[in-house]
């Protein structure tokens, strides 16, 4: 059974005993023991997965790491967050997914307009099953709980991932003032309703609309 643990906050150590994990291509920084690295075309989701990823643009370069020992992963010194899944579904951008256990299935799903506003495309990656996944964020991610009474509104640039039964909708406050550059600067927001957890990062990537 692969065991994921954080070494500090920016390096992930994975203990392997003959089993495997999937990791972002090229994210290995060091290893101890015997490891083999195998590129998995199409995120290791078979031909159908490969086609879906090609078509949706949610390309994910993944490798399978297998062996005995400890393998260390890191990506551009961004913060790493461990997520334990117990049968629920994690929605995350492919570029923010660092390592998943092989007991987890990955796939693609349609996100609607939110993806477009984020500059991440209309599709996102899902991770499903039981096991651990490691996700990347620019600055340590803050986990926010959404309940029926407390919906949450998130800036698209700060959104990283979410789990649970959440409905999301893009809310816009675009008016003529936005067009002439006098907008509120927070014109696009994603509203999460339902029950679940949302991961946000303390920074905003540049979105299609620029600094919104």
């Amino acid at each position: 059974m692969a065991f994921l643990r954080l070494q500090g906050t920016r390096v992930l150590a994975v203990d392997l005993a003959g089993d495997a994990v999937r990791a972002k291509n090229g994210a290995m920084v060091a290893y101890d023991g015997e490891m083999t690295f195998k590129k998995m075309t199409g995120g290791g989701e078979g031909l159908r997965g490969l086609m879906t990823r090609r078509i949706t643009g949610e390309a994910m370069a993944v490798m399978e790491v297998k062996g005995h020992g400890t393998c260390y992963f890191a990506d551009r010194a961004t913060e790493i967050n461990l997520v334990r899944l117990d049968g629920e579904k994690l929605f995350v951008e492919a570029s923010n997914l660092l390592v998943t256990e092989t007991s987890l299935r990955t796939g693609t799903t349609f996100t609607g307009l939110r993806g477009a506003s984020q500059g991440n495309g209309l599709f996102t990656t899902t991770v499903e099953g039981t096991g651990q996944a490691a996700i990347l964020s620019d600055g340590p991610a803050i986990v926010l709980r959404v309940t029926a009474q407390t919906p949450l509104v998130v800036d698209p640039g700060a959104y990283v991932a979410h789990t649970g039964g959440l409905r999301q909708q893009l809310q816009t406050a675009v008016g003529w003032r936005t067009l002439v550059g006098e907008g509120s600067g927070e014109s696009f927001q994603i509203r999460f309703e339902g029950d679940g957890l949302v991961y946000v990062q303390p920074s905003e990537r540049i979105t299609v609309g620029g600094q919104l």
Binding site: I142, L144, T150, P151, L152, V153, V154, D155, G157, A158, A173, R177, E182, G183, S184, G185, E186, V198, V200, Q201, P202, S203, E204, Q211, L212
Partner: peptide, 20 residues
């Protein structure tokens, strides 16, 4: 707030340009 520094909020919050 300076534009674009809000990352998330709970509750009812409106954002308006100053002077608008």
């Amino acid at each position: 707030l300076q534009k674009g520094k809000m990352i998330a909020f709970y509750g009812q919050v409106d954002f308006q340009g100053i002077g608008a």
